[in-house]
Amino acid sequence: MNKNGKFIVIGLVILLIILHHDVWNWDKKEPVMGFMPVALLWQALISIGAGITWYIATKIAWPVFDDDEVAVATESVTDATSEVSEGGE
């Protein structure tokens, strides 16, 4: 997990919550692209923004569990052993 990852994700979520409350779009009647109500398009973009935010979260703020640590440690040991074996050849 990235050290600042948690704070970046919290910041992005707060930003999404603020953008979600789009009072500036409240009285927009004319559709975008000829068919999409602004009230709907803006909020659909918030959904896409949420998807991107959560993607970033899985990359920089995903928690590590004991088993994962064990798995990582085992992989490292395996790698190290292979390197030693290769070196020995």
């Binding site: 979520v13 709907l40 959904s47």
Partner: peptide
């Protein structure tokens, strides 16, 4: 009620549901 219904629950759910999976689900699974 009109097009604003999406903002009432759908977009907020996109943020909050995943947040719950993330901060509660993974930890509870563990």
């Amino acid at each position: 009620e009109g097009a604003g219904v999406y903002g009432l629950l759908a977009s907020s759910s996109g943020i909050i549901h995943s947040l719950c999976f993330f901060v509660l689900g993974v930890k509870l699974w563990d």
